[in-house]
Each structure stands twice: as C-alpha cells, then as structure tokens.
Design a protein around this nucleic acid. Structure first.
Lengths: 230, 230
DNA sequence: TAGATTAATAGTGTCGACAATTGGGGTGTT
DNA sequence: AACACCCCAATTGTCGACACTATTAATCTA
C-alpha cells in the first residue's frame, strides 16, 4: 500500500489520476530518474489525450519531479548528491519553522495522538526490526503531523504537496542504511517532548538536527556509489 | 518600467507571453485580487486559445497568484492579513537561510557589486526622498542578489520564481508607509557587512529581522483598513 | 409562500488535428 | 577527413470542437 497524503484534493478528473499514477511511478523508480518523457508515448500508455497528460506534467513540474524546456520536452528529475544537499537545506529550514510553530499551535489532543503514533512505531519496530518500510511510512506520518500542527496553510502546502514527493523519491530510491531506525525514534521522542513543553526554539533545533542526520544517511549512499565507480 | 527577473527562461512560446502579461496585471492589481477568472473571456482578451491560456494559469498557480478548483474554475488570490503572516513566516525562514549561505558562498566581486548597489540607492534616495518606487525596485534587487549568492539552485527557484511575485503583489497593492525607507537602508548595510565578514549566523538573524520589519509595515495597512471599516 | 426538484446555461475537462520548432542524418564542399 | 549546410522526421505548441459538470433560473409541490 502506498502512502497517500490526506490533505490532497480528491481525485475527480482524469488528469488527477494520471498525475497521481505518474507521481508514484516516478517516486518509486518505475519511471527511471533522469529519463526523457515522450508525451505521445505516455499518453497512449495511460489511455488519455496529450492535453490531459500535459496537465499532469505541469503538476509534476510543480512538485519538482519533472523538468520542462520549451520546444524540447520533459525529463524526470535526476537524483544527484548536489541536489540532495540543496533540497535538504531548504527542507531543514522549513520543517524547523513548522516545528517551532507546532510548539505554539498544536492542540493538546494532537500532541497526544502524536505520542500514541510514536508508541505504535515502537511496537511494530520491535517486531519488524531492520525492515525499513514501516519506519519509512511512520517517519513520514510523524513529520506530516507536525507540519499540519504548524497551522500555517502556506507552509503546509509547500512541504506536504510540493516538496515531500521529491524527498520521498530520494528515500525510496537511495534507501536508508545502517541502524538509523532506533536512533530516529529517540530523536522523534525528544522533538515531541519539546513541542509538549511549548519550547519552540528547542523543537526547531532538534528537528533541524534530525533532518541533517537523515540527510547524512542518504548522502552515504551517494558516497558508496561514487566509490564503487572508482 | 516593470521589474523583471533575470534568471527566468526567455519568452519563446505564446503561453509564456500570456503568463508574463497576466502575472504583471495580477501583481499590479489590473486584474483585481480575489476576482474570478473566466477562461473563455481572458482567452479572447489575450487572443489565444483556451489551451494556451490554461497553460499560463497553471504556471500562475505555481507561483500562488491564482487558485483552481476542479470543475469550478480559477480565481485570483485574495490578499489577507492572515495570508501575509503565513507567507512572511516562510519568506523569513528561507531568505534567512539564503543570507546565511550567501555569507559563505558569495564571491568577493559579488559583495562588491552589492555595496555599489547600496551606495547607488543612497544617491537616488536622497534625491527622491519619500518616493517609494526606487526603493521598491532597489530593495527587490538587493534581496534578489543575496538569494543568488546562496548558490542553492532550489532555494533560488523557490524564492525568485515561485514566491517573489506574491510578495511583490502585497507590496505593490498594500503599499509601504512611513519613514521605512532610510531605516531599510541601514538594515541593508548591516546585512552586507555581516556577509562580507562571512558571519552567516549574524547575516541570517539580521535578514530575518529586516523581513519581519517589512512585514510589520505592510501589516499596518491591513490594520488601517480594518479600523476604517469600524 | 417556502421549499425542493428539475431544466437550461454557462464553464470546465478532454479530445483529435494542425502548425511550428528542434535535433539528427545525410549530402556536399573545401 | 573535417566542417558546414540543408532537409526530413519526430516532438512539442496551439487550436477549435465536443462531453461533462456545476450553478442558476424556472417550475412544481406541500
């Protein structure tokens, strides 16, 4: 089952469907990163007209999954170490902000739900130690809820609708290695505590560090690939 | 003369032209904020087909100037005090980041150019005291150059291509009041000094404050409008 | 008369076809 | 053999028409 984002508009139109389908295929690597996109080909594949497909491509461009050039065409974004750094610098800054705002604006029951979610992770994690999938979805859920807790609609849109799919793409295709799972759990716990105490500054700082650690983890994969070539 | 952004793709296609034209009209208020957009009507007005106009609308949506709902239509964004706060929280965070990065990554000649720009502002400003136009364009230029100095392509795109037009829209339509001009100059100067000294932390902090001050200035206009109604 | 139901009417979503542009391959020239 | 030029195929940009949806106006019912 794929992780869906709850605050998205419901899928009513055909281009919505193509957008969601293509997004998943790009994030998961079925449509390979860096490859060129042929509009006539994909239109046939999804059984829609080119106009509909182009509508979907426009939206994919909005969340940084494809890049267009006028009169040339469209290609899937390429995952590079440089871009990872750039994106994570932005992510760190924005989610840090979200976390600080959440410390002020989250309702008590939201915080409670967040703690329950974390306990739930602890359960499943003990059972499925090493299996990263649940942690993957769980981590996203954790971040997702905090972002929602900021109550800043613009920020929520920016992170949940625009940026997150690209981040997921790095995580899914570059994978997570090592014993990051349990460490991430502790970090999550510390963040929740800071939020519960309405300590915005601390919450922001902890979230930024948490994200930096996550970045370093993915970075490792790039370093490995580079060494493998040499 | 309108302020154009230098890092934009050149206008080759018809939808490019419509996009740029509509963007200006929305930012300047010719197309009034909050109003509904009729695709057939505007298509006729710009002398293009609906497909071309829709392409432009998609891009306007990407920079937060219009909002679409499926099967309902499109309307120009409404300027509200709440949204101003939300947008400026994000802006402050991102430009703070950009400023911190610029302190590390700007070339000496870029810093030099920035200082010259500031001196130039001082000249024109003395002559045209009170007239906000030059300060308007100059301030944008100042921020623009620092953002470029971050050397983070993703961040640059986010700020210069996606967010800035909306910020301009607030500034143009809500105006700037009071003796903010000379104060802004001093703030700019302090920021440049921090960048020159490669003091990223200070530069970030000063930029955030500078932006907060700018926000408070625009906020005043909303408060005035609210009082005027009562 | 108030409310609900239904029909007309814009307006949006989608389609297939045409026009304009790009990139590549082949030809010719020096 | 290297380079420049030109032509052609493929792809993208644009158009007008059709299908479907939502909103409004009119009609009917209680």
């Amino acid at each position: 089952m794929t992780h869906t984002f709850l605050n998205e508009a419901p899928i009513t139109t055909a281009s919505d469907q193509v957008f969601v389908d293509m997004r998943r295929e790009i994030v998961e690597g079925t449509i390979v990163q860096g490859s060129k996109i042929s509009e006539p080909e994909l239109a046939k594949r999804y059984g829609v007209s080119r106009a509909t497909l182009r509508e979907a491509l426009n939206r994919l461009e909005s969340c940084y999954l494809v890049e267009r050039k006028a009169n040339v065409g469209c290609r899937v974004v390429a995952l590079t170490a440089e871009r990872l750094i750039e994106v994570y610098q932005v992510r760190s800054s924005l989610e840090g902000l979200a976390c600080r705002l959440a410390a002020d604006n989250m309702e008590p029951e939201e915080v409670k739900g967040l703690k329950q979610l974390l306990n739930q992770h602890l359960q499943t994690q003990r059972v499925k130690e090493g299996e990263s999938y649940y942690q993957e979805a769980g981590d996203l859920d954790f971040h997702y809820r905090i972002i929602q807790g900021s109550k800043n609609a613009h920020l929520i849109h920016l992170l949940c609708n625009e940026l997150y799919q690209l981040i997921r793409m790095y995580r899914v295709q570059m994978g997570m290695v090592g014993p990051r799972v349990s460490k991430a759990f502790d970090e999550h716990l510390a963040i929740i505590n800071a939020i519960e105490n309405h300590d915005g500054e601390l919450a922001e700082m902890l979230m930024k560090r948490h994200i930096s650690a996550s970045q370093a983890n993915i970075q490792t994969k790039f370093d490995l690939l580079a060494k493998q070539k040499a």
